[in-house]
């Protein structure tokens, strides 16, 4: 069974069908590349999966359980994490605080314990701080942990976005153009990190315009155009696909 099943999914904005009758399966521990020209509906699809929109038709199910129609925080609790195309962080908080805040739903001790700062709450808090430090270490941001998020260079902000998403311990991670604004070195490190995440059992859907990066990362690609799936398959197949070439070239010629 697929981890995420998308069935007959449409998302209309007025007359525009940003996503149109989409069927898609995402399998456990894969990296799926989602590509397509600007305005194809990739971000909208992420917004539907993570609960910011209730789809006009169709459904999204995680491990057989319907999640479309739930609130974003409920969907997050089911194990779907994401980053945003435009960097979204807790800008006035430190890098470390950003990640600790990301752990919000991993707490088990009750609110009263939290309020009274009891022993068990403190122990849990320390455990979470350690975890947060580990995530920053893994993504290479340890040295910057006391900087304010707003003062980071753009590439590091993108990386921090992934760190925050990881704090929620997601099963499925949606990355919306994680490489924009990164220099070639940062791009390579980030690709490496994403591979390691997959090895840890996190399933990933990545939207990315950097084709070389996508080809090196994904086994499988899905191509959207005008909200519709125009191709799906292995990287090599997609490269030679006529409809795909047309969608991209047609866009460029205009």
């Amino acid at each position: 069974m697929a981890l995420l099943e998308i069935r007959n999914l449409s998302q209309h904005f007025g007359g525009v069908a940003a996503v149109s009758r989409l069927d898609l399966d995402i399998f456990d521990s894969e990296i799926l590349g989602l590509i397509g020209p600007n305005g194809a509906g990739k971000t909208t699809l992420f917004n539907v999966i993570s609960g910011f929109y209730t789809p006009s038709t169709g459904s999204v199910a995680l491990k057989g359980e319907r999640v479309s129609g739930l609130r974003p925080d409920e969907i997050a609790k089911k194990g779907i994490g994401r980053t945003f195309q435009q960097t979204v962080l807790f800008m006035r908080s430190s890098v470390f605080d950003n990640v600790v805040t990301g752990f919000h739903m991993n707490y088990t001790s009750g609110l009263m314990n939290q309020f009274l700062h009891t022993r068990s709450a403190k122990d849990e808090e320390n455990g979470i701080k350690k975890e947060a430090a580990r995530i920053l270490e893994f993504m290479g941001l340890s040295a910057l942990k006391d900087e304010l998020a707003q003062n980071l260079p753009h590439g590091h902000q993108r990386t921090l976005g992934i760190c925050v998403a990881l704090a929620a311990n997601p099963q499925l991670l949606l990355l919306d153009e994680p490489l924009t604004g990164m220099n070639p070195t940062e791009t390579l490190t980030t690709l490496d990190h994403i591979r390691q995440l997959k090895d840890r059992g996190i399933t990933i859907i990545i939207v990315e315009h950097n084709m070389k990066a996508v080809m090196s990362l994904c086994e499988r690609l899905v191509v959207l155009n005008h909200g519709e799936k125009i191709a799906e398959g292995k990287c090599e197949e997609i490269q030679d696909n006529k409809a795909v070439i047309e969608a991209y070239l047609g866009k460029e010629r205009r």
Binding site: F52, P72, G81, S93
Partner: peptide, 15 residues
């Protein structure tokens, strides 16, 4: 703090 900083990100983190 998360809500005050970005409701979108707060929601995605499960708030």
């Amino acid at each position: 703090t998360a809500i005050g900083s970005s409701t979108r990100l707060a929601e995605v983190q499960g708030v």
